[in-house]
Amino acid sequence: MAEIMYWEAIRRAHDEEMARDPLVIAMGEDIGVAGGTYKATKGLYDKYGPQRIIDTPISENSFTGLGIGASFLGVRPIIELMSVNFAWLAMDQIFNSAAKVRYMSGGQLTAPVVIRSPGGTAHQLGAQHSARMEKVFMGIAGLRVVTPSNPKQAYGLLKSAVRCNDPVFINEHELMYNMKGEVPDGEYFHPLEGSEVTRQGRDVTLFGYNISVHWSMQAAEILAKQHGIEAEVVDLYSLAPLDRAGIRESVSKTHRAVIVEEAEAPVGVGAEVMAIINEECFFELDAAPVRVSAKMVPTPFNHTLEKASIPNAKDVVAAVLKMISGK
C-alpha cells in the first residue's frame, strides 16, 4: 500500500477511469493545459487530449449543465468546480436538472455526473472563497453527497461515484490536497453510503467529516493523554444519505455525542445528526449532544479572525470536558 497525497489519489482515480472507459471525461476551469488548480488532472490533458480533458470557459452553471446533458447520452463527466463558492452559480443545473431528471421523467433519464469541488477555510482567501456548502447539497432529493477525509477515500469515493448511476457531489477541501495517506495499490471502490469508525472509544463520540475528522482525532488524543477520556471518532464520509445505523450504534455505545463541523451550525450537518440521534437513540444519551461549529460570520481576511471563525481541536476538547463534567 503506497502513501500518496490526496490530490494524487484523485488524479489516479481520474486516470484509471478514463483509461477504462472512453466515455469518461473531465471538465472544469484550467484543468487541462494548466493541469488543474489542485493538480487533480495533472498530465491527463497530454494523455487524453482536449476532447476528454476539457478546459471550460468561466461559465459554471452552463458547463455543469453541459456535463449533465452529455450524461443523458451515456457520457460520464467528472466536473470540477474550482471552489465550492462557485457552485452557487451552478446550483440551478445541479438542483433543477441533475437531481430531478430521473424523478420527473419517471425513471427514463438519469444524470450520472460527478461534481467535485473544494470547500473550506484555507489561508486568507476571504469571504467569497472560503465557504462551506455541504449543508446546501445534502438537503436535495436525488443527489448523493460524499466528502473524503483522506487519500484512500478521495480515490475510492471518486471511483465509485464515476460508476454510480446517480449524480454525486464530492465535497473536498482546499487544505487537504497535500495530505498524505495510504491508498490500496489495487483498484478500490469506497462505498458511497455509510460511515467509518476512525478511532474506538467508550466515553463520547466525536462525529466529524472531511477536515473535522482530523480535528476530532487530535482532540481524542489530547482527551486520552491529558484527561483519561476515551473518545470514539466517527467519520461521516457520506452526508447524503447520513448513516443512521452508524450514528445509532456509536451513540448507543458511548452515550454522548459531539458533532464537529467547519460550517456554521444552523441547518447543518450537526443539526441533522442531532435530529437523527433524537429519532434513533434518544434514551441512550447521558448528556445533551452539542455542536462545535463555525461562527456566523462571512469568513474574515485577517488571519487571527479567520482562525477564530472556525473550530479547532481545542474547542472540541473543551466541549467534551464541559459535557462530561456537567459544568
Binding site: F63, I68, G69, A70, F72, V75
Partner: peptide, 11 residues
C-alpha cells in the same frame, strides 16, 4: 440550453 449543448458534446 446547456443540456442541449451537452447532448451535442456526447454525439
Amino acid at each position: 440550453f446547456p443540456l442541449a449543448v451537452g447532448m451535442a458534446k456526447a454525439i
